[in-house]
Design a protein around this nucleic acid. Sequence first.
DNA 1: CTGTTAGCGCCTTCAC
DNA 2: GTGAAGGCGCTAACAG
Lengths: 350, 350
Amino acid sequence: MPTIYYVAKHAGVAPATVSRVINDSGYVAGETRERVERAIAALGYAPNRLAQGLRSKQTQTLGLILTDITNPFWTTVARGVEDAASKAGFSVVLCNTDESQAKQDQYARLLLQKQVDGFVLVPACNDAETVTRIRERGVPLVVFDRRVPIPVDTVRGDSEGGAHSLVRHLLAQGHRRIAVLGGAREVSTATDRVAGYRRAMGEAGLTVDPALILYRDFTLAAGDEMASLVLALDPAPTALFAVNNFIAIGALRALRDAGVRVPEDVAMVAFDDLPQAMVVEPFLTVAAQPAYQMGHQATELLLARLAGDKSDKILEIILPAQLVVRRSSSHKVGPSLNPFVKDVELSHQN
Amino acid sequence: MPTIYYVAKHAGVAPATVSRVINDSGYVAGETRERVERAIAALGYAPNRLAQGLRSKQTQTLGLILTDITNPFWTTVARGVEDAASKAGFSVVLCNTDESQAKQDQYARLLLQKQVDGFVLVPACNDAETVTRIRERGVPLVVFDRRVPIPVDTVRGDSEGGAHSLVRHLLAQGHRRIAVLGGAREVSTATDRVAGYRRAMGEAGLTVDPALILYRDFTLAAGDEMASLVLALDPAPTALFAVNNFIAIGALRALRDAGVRVPEDVAMVAFDDLPQAMVVEPFLTVAAQPAYQMGHQATELLLARLAGDKSDKILEIILPAQLVVRRSSSHKVGPSLNPFVKDVELSHQN
DNA sequence: CTGTTAGCGCCTTCAC
DNA sequence: GTGAAGGCGCTAACAG
């Protein structure tokens, strides 16, 4: 492993000059630069990033902590982060918490020790501990997709608005009894989506039956369980709103096993699209978040902070979710049995 | 940011003693250790990994370079790697090459500069350059899933055998005209799977129609294109073999658009399963590779090399692919029109 | 069992 | 425009 000293000797210059060439910093005469570059090539020299980082206090590395690397939504986000970072000469270390706060905190500590320059964090729960730890160390941070209870730079999708669109769409199809298959109560995306549901129901003059709102977590198994539960209710809901893609798939599976057809017997909508690549025939009506773009934008915000944008304004960037109407909600329901229910305006786009 | 010196001063000991406590190396008296631990806690000290790595020449970090983070097969592998690594106190840096050799080489260089202790590499193509570069630096390396033209530790699925099972299964269903929707010609998994196809056909006494073997790449678009091409042949194949999951989905989509039913009009099998989470109703007959386990095992091999297993034996670990028969190939075809075709033994399991 | 010394590979200051 | 010196935070080697 050649070091900067060997290169310097080989080129007949001082180590500092080699450093200037590597980092394109300071003045180096054209001829000197060439000599150094030739020496670097001849020796196959590559700088040791640990030493660079130790000395310069910058690692050109960002930490990305997310909750489920298995979910295509998050891998798409990761690509957005990665692309934005590498465009700026940064690399990304990706960590997967499995929705566990313990793992999240562990990874945050590790990355801090590795001296990453900044964080994009998808918090496993509505808790400020990890965020606080990172900020105490003075490392820039953007919270992604989920809210935490303290003010901090954030990039997220419009969970409330997207849910509102989905439920309005169902209402327009004639549904009145709509169940929510929710995620973890401690996660803002779950509660915000329920809030959007409530608002849409309220605007339609409908009262919400609490038995129709369930909270579990963002998994297949939870979707399966919640779907089975609400279908056993009397009267059963005519439509289901799954607050994420995995819950939706779990629910669809439960419905299939129970011989319940979608959309003929029950309609279904969900938050988060499944990527094209996973599905032969797109079928679910969804509120699709611009995952890639969100990741990209969060990273650009982070890089701006790194570049010294010390404006004390805390930014909260909220990107709209797009309503995509497909077959799973295409079955119209007859006029409500309840004559007191107001009509809602028809609208398939938000 | 407290350093080891502050901690030492705070505890009234020398920095080296603090180091001994942190790393649990050397002898430290119980009472001293406690004092140091209290100081660490009081100051919120955490060691700087850059400095540790620079000094000790070990980063406790592995590099994982793979070709498509979007594909659930690879994210599952990544989890296997991650779990095996963290059990041993290593962390993993994941890099996505998008099947680009240029990106692969770039990431290898970067990780080398970051002084990772070892690599798990999924080569983007059948080329030894990256592998050679890594070995020249003396960094242990396990090649994953695909072969490269030089001998090196490898963990991979049995592509040839899995393809053989799939095609035998199709033959047992009565198919004789079977098309292969192939991946990149430069990637061993693509060519090995074609080899398995050829062997199965040969064993059944069938000659292979070269028009039925296509090579593109491992994407949806390629699957779509290849399916359209082979269906236009005269006579058209009665069964399709997609050499990976994404090709299969692309092909299924093309078939749907063309109004061709699976399995009634044409049968379909594929290499690599889609994870449960992605599909409501498992439908495709596949040769499933144990992705998680493969990642785990590759990492354990790598860690063994790191731990000093310098046995010069180069290991090539080949894990079997499991034939999973589902609906997409369940339609039997009548006796061959060609009376000279031999019967093959019936067997649904390999 | 603990302290002292030296240096990992690099970059930043400051001279010249 | 270039070189010399010092130190980033830590651990290995050696004393004691």
